[in-house]
Design a protein around this nucleic acid. Structure first.
Length: 375
RNA sequence: GGGUAGGUUGAGCAGGUGGUGAGCUCCGCUGACUGUAGAUCAGCCGUCUUCGACUGUGGGGGUUCGAUUCCCUCCCUGCCCA
């Protein structure tokens, strides 16, 4: 029996589909957004907060958790779900992103990556096999193959080299899968080069992965380049029935763009990261809770939002909390942003069914265009 | 009343022995953040017409080419004595 099953039906919107991913810990309506809980916590939020916000699946991270508290300890304590008291589905990143973001702390070779721990400077080794072992110990519902992403602006030779390494690591990741109840997703790389992306889709989609992730995007390239790359990947995948996960995306305007091009799953730190410094997302665009003008605003962050922060608190109160550096500020802002983002995804799903998708997409584009339009 | 130490841009300071005081930390203002080394980081933070210029060292006066510095006087604050 497959660890996860995915059923999806096409819609009238481009390559968009409406689907359902069933995992050992529950189901996910797609397209869906997964809040990121790198260190076994979606920063500032309890599992109850996440459930109330409508979260169906969250992320954990191989690199961080293997260093602390260590995968072995999590396993001894009953696995990641029990450890963090999140009963729903969990996807674990393989640590591939850290190969990219911690560039100055690592050395890459064909076998794997050697890191200097950002915590204590100790030498750490991550290979496809070890990444899969860690994820098996964590017990996530979906494990990610160990990949290497690079700046798409690098010379094509280097982008191709990292991509080909990713393909070899994909095979090894799949061969090293540790448990039958855990799905494994492969990751397509290739920067913003159409030819490389097509080659990468061919190399990854031909393997027995349970899902296909698109990595290496939203790392500085333009919105247009990301959309064009998603078009290429979408064409190359054709009617491949597996779930498609766009890694590390996105901002409010990115979701519709990607959904139209066939994406089913998203994850991104943005809603929680920006929330902690006072930026909240609303139907009218974004709002900086530190702005002086909000100190006298008795209204909620977003009148259309049903989250705890919007139900119970005013912008003026939030503005005060951030000004006073009270931890409730980042917490309530995180509650709101995750709730709002998940609600946006719900509206987009509804829109795919009833024809209002374009209207939702355009409203968000107008509200956020000023900020997130791109280069 | 006497003595003493002080008064520097919102706050707290640094510096300054007659020769360029706009330097720091807070506060404040604005922005950034995309598979989280991020409750972080960046810019601004006297005024203006801002690649520059002007003003500013408690108030007033004096000496001087030139005063934050020297002199006179007044005001304010802390501490000690009476």
């Amino acid at each position: 029996m497959a660890p996860v099953t995915f059923t999806a039906r096409p819609t009238t919107v481009g390559r968009a589909r409406l689907g359902r991913l069933v995992t050992p810990h529950g189901l996910i309506d797609t397209p869906q957004f997964m809040p990121v809980g790198t260190q076994a916590t979606v920063k500032a939020l309890t599992p109850g907060d996440l459930a109330a916000a409508g979260a169906q699946m969250i992320l954990g991270n191989t690199y961080h958790l293997s260093l602390r508290p260590t995968a072995e300890r999590v396993a001894r304590l009953g696995g990641l779900h029990r450890f963090m008291s999140w009963d729903g589905p969990i996807l674990t990143d393989s640590g591939g992103f850290q190969v990219f973001s911690l560039a100055h702390l690592r050395r890459v070779d064909d076998d794997g990556v050697t890191f200097t721990s950002h915590l204590d400077g100790s030498v750490q080794r991550l290979t496809p096999e070890r990444a899969m072992e860690i994820q098996a110990l964590l017990g996530s519902d979906v494990a990610m193959a160990f990949d290497q992403l690079v700046d798409p602006g690098l010379p094509a030779v280097q982008v191709a080299e990292a991509m080909e390494r990713t393909h070899r690591w994909a095979e090894r990741s799949l061969a090293a899968r540790g448990r039958p109840d855990q799905a494994v997703f492969g990751i397509v790389q290739g920067g913003v080069d159409a030819e490389l992306r097509r080659a990468s889709v061919a190399a990854i989609a031909s393997q027995a992965f349970d899902g296909i992730a698109i990595g290496g995007l939203s790392v500085g390239e333009s919105k247009a380049a990301m959309a064009a790359t998603l078009d290429v990947v979408g064409d190359a995948l054709g009617d491949d029935p597996r779930p498609r996960y766009l890694m590390g995306v996105g901002s409010p305007v990115d979701f519709a763009t990607a959904i139209e091009r066939g994406i089913d799953l998203f994850d991104c730190v943005l809603p929680t990261r920006v929330a902690r410094t006072g930026q909240v997302w609303t139907d009218a665009g974004r709002l900086n809770l530190r702005n002086a003008a909000l100190q006298d605003d008795p209204g909620p962050i977003d009148p259309g939002c049903a989250c705890e922060a919007c139900r119970n608190h005013s912008r003026a109160y939030l503005a005060h909390l951030f000004r006073a550096r009270e931890m409730l500020g980042p917490r309530l802002a995180s509650v709101h942003n995750v709730s709002w983002t998940l609600a946006l995804l719900a509206r987009l799903r509804t829109g795919l069914g009833d024809g209002s998708f374009g209207a939702v997409r355009d409203a968000v584009a107008i509200a956020f265009g000023r900020v997130y339009d791109a280069v």
